[in-house]
Design a protein around this nucleic acid. Structure first.
Lengths: 150, 150
DNA sequence: CTTGACCTTGCACCCGGCTCCAAGGTGCAA
DNA sequence: TTGCACCTTGGAGCCGGGTGCAAGGTCAAG
């Protein structure tokens, strides 16, 4: 596949032409070779690089991380340990994100569990929680009628 | 707390003054009352509203969702079920996000597990995966020297 | 009266990762 | 030759959620 146009490259790699140009602009792809007419011209190694980017993106790596990974790939002095370090960092971030989201989800699920759908919003424990009224955990206050002397 | 300044409100609610003005601009807070000099002046209900926003934000609600929650809170016709619906939506999004991140994390952990840190990057299974070379699952190719006639 | 901390406004800018547009040039088929 | 699809460039706009800044007004302490 010598001399693909940007459209062919984009089609073959599953990104848009604008995105290819964007990647070139930010230095993620090298400046493309040009035809006489000034059209960008790509070879199979460009396609491989774009596919690499797409796969890395699907694993949640940022373009900045991907740039580093590509540097490691192209640098004879780098080791698998270097790649592993980036990967471990990414895993750690993921674990933290998952933990944060799971904590939020648990909190919401907890609130949702005790929410009586047919009650007026003013009795909604979710709104109560958001309003900062976690004092009354829940349930009917025992004999509110009796608690005159509070 | 009648007639707090924007700075006092911000201090008491844990957001910045700029953010308070921003919330006013996007309609999340009502236009504040003004002093004769044109300074914004807040009461305790504004503080409560800002704290509501902060708590909802910490549960990952978007400002748009928060606006809806506040509308529900202020609307006598709304029910706890309305709040619950928003909450369930949010929970569903969270569960999807968690599942996506967990899948990525598992994939990365899987790749990281088999990565020999001291090998050159060219032998890194992570890079190999990103390059799309999942053909050779791993291990030494059996007798590469013998495979002359492939 | 001055200093300094606060307040006002409007507007621009940031992050990441694109996406779209207009105005013009090129390549190929009917 | 005409038409259409593709290519080029520079630049702007989008998303959400703010942040920063400059030029000016206000207020309280010393």
């Amino acid at each position: 596949m010598r001399g693909m146009s940007i459209g062919e490259l984009a089609g073959a790699s599953g990104v848009r032409t604008d995105t290819v140009r964007y990647y070139e602009r930010i230095g993620l792809l090298a400046m493309a070779a040009r035809t006489e007419a000034g059209y960008r011209s790509y070879g199979s190694e460009d396609l491989a690089r774009l596919r690499f980017i797409r796969r890395a993106k699907s694993l949640g790596f940022s373009l900045e991380d991907i740039r580093r990974l590509l540097d490691l790939q192209g640098n004879d002095a780098s080791t698998a340990g270097d790649v592993l370090a980036l990967t471990r960092q990414r895993i750690e971030v993921l674990q933290n994100q998952i933990a944060d989201l799971a904590a939020i989800e648990a909190a919401l699920a907890n609130l949702a569990r005790d929410c009586p759908p047919d009650a007026p919003a003013s009795d909604c424990p979710i709104l109560a929680h958001l309003a900062g009224l976690h004092r009354f955990k829940m349930g009917v206050p025992r004999s509110p009628i009796m608690s005159r002397k509070d």
